[in-house]
Design a protein around this nucleic acid. Structure first.
Lengths: 131, 131
DNA sequence: ACACAAAACCGACTGCCTGTCGGTATTTGT
DNA sequence: ACAAATACCGACAGGCAGTCGGTTTTGTGT
């Protein structure tokens, strides 16, 4: 999945606003970059067709919402770039992580550890839920 | 940085082989996909211009090497996709990790923890080296 | 029901990137 | 110097994002 600059900005905006129609997005983004309303409409449509947005008509206009959260999307994009290079089941996925973590400071590393713990806890919960 | 399919395959091959000229790459990749030697040459050239390969002339031909390791590149690509969405210093980088880790099994989580430890150790070493 | 305004929709065009490769210029070993 | 191998140049196709004009559809108020 490839996302253009405008598409990313639109997504960002929708994550902040949760819901908006083309006009609102246009007003919000136009302050920084100009451009026609139509351009925004096309972009929203393309994101919709990519299944990244949902829409619902209210009055004249569609109101768009992000279908996936920012973190979820980023995670998916990470998956994409890693899967291109790493054969399934290969541990390089972890190695990639390793390289990535080299760019993190100590605080972030600690946070990561915490998140791993959380992840584990989340799972054991799910398991007992399932039982 | 966007990489096409062929570019990725070429990189993969060079990571496995460490060094090769266009002909060798062509032979290796052509078995799966056909195509002219020229195509490979162009691709190698584009990767070279993207600073992903180094080259050195030996006899008639350039011999190419990957300038960056697989993990390093993957890490860079991960950075790219995350930075597009996450403002600097924002903790969403970590959150993205979190989403990503949701797709990992327990083993991988443990490996991740180990890698974090390693990373820490590596750093304390570097610090004492610097002193 | 009708007319009007607002928005959707369609289609075109541009620019960029990768894959593809033919043809020509260079280089190298003999 | 010659022939072969290779690099280099330039072109074209296909795909995708950004852009937007023009037309059609659709709500809404009267």
């Amino acid at each position: 999945m490839i996302l253009g600059d405008l598409e990313k900005r639109v997504l960002q905006f929708l994550w902040e606003t949760s819901e908006a129609d083309a006009k609102q997005v246009h007003v919000a983004l136009t302050k920084r970059r100009g451009g026609a309303l139509n351009t925004i409409q096309s972009t929203l449509d393309r994101l919709f067709k990519k299944d990244l947005l949902t829409r619902q008509k209210q009055g004249h206009a569609y109101y768009y919402r992000a279908r996936v959260g920012k973190e979820e999307l980023v995670a998916q994009l990470i998956q994409n770039v890693t899967c291109d290079f790493i054969s399934e089941g290969e541990d390089s996925l972890i190695a990639a992580f390793s390289s990535f973590s080299a760019g993190l400071d100590d605080d972030k590393l600690s946070q990561l550890e915490k998140l791993i713990q959380q992840q584990r806890q989340l799972r054991s919960q799910e398991v007992s839920d399932a039982d």
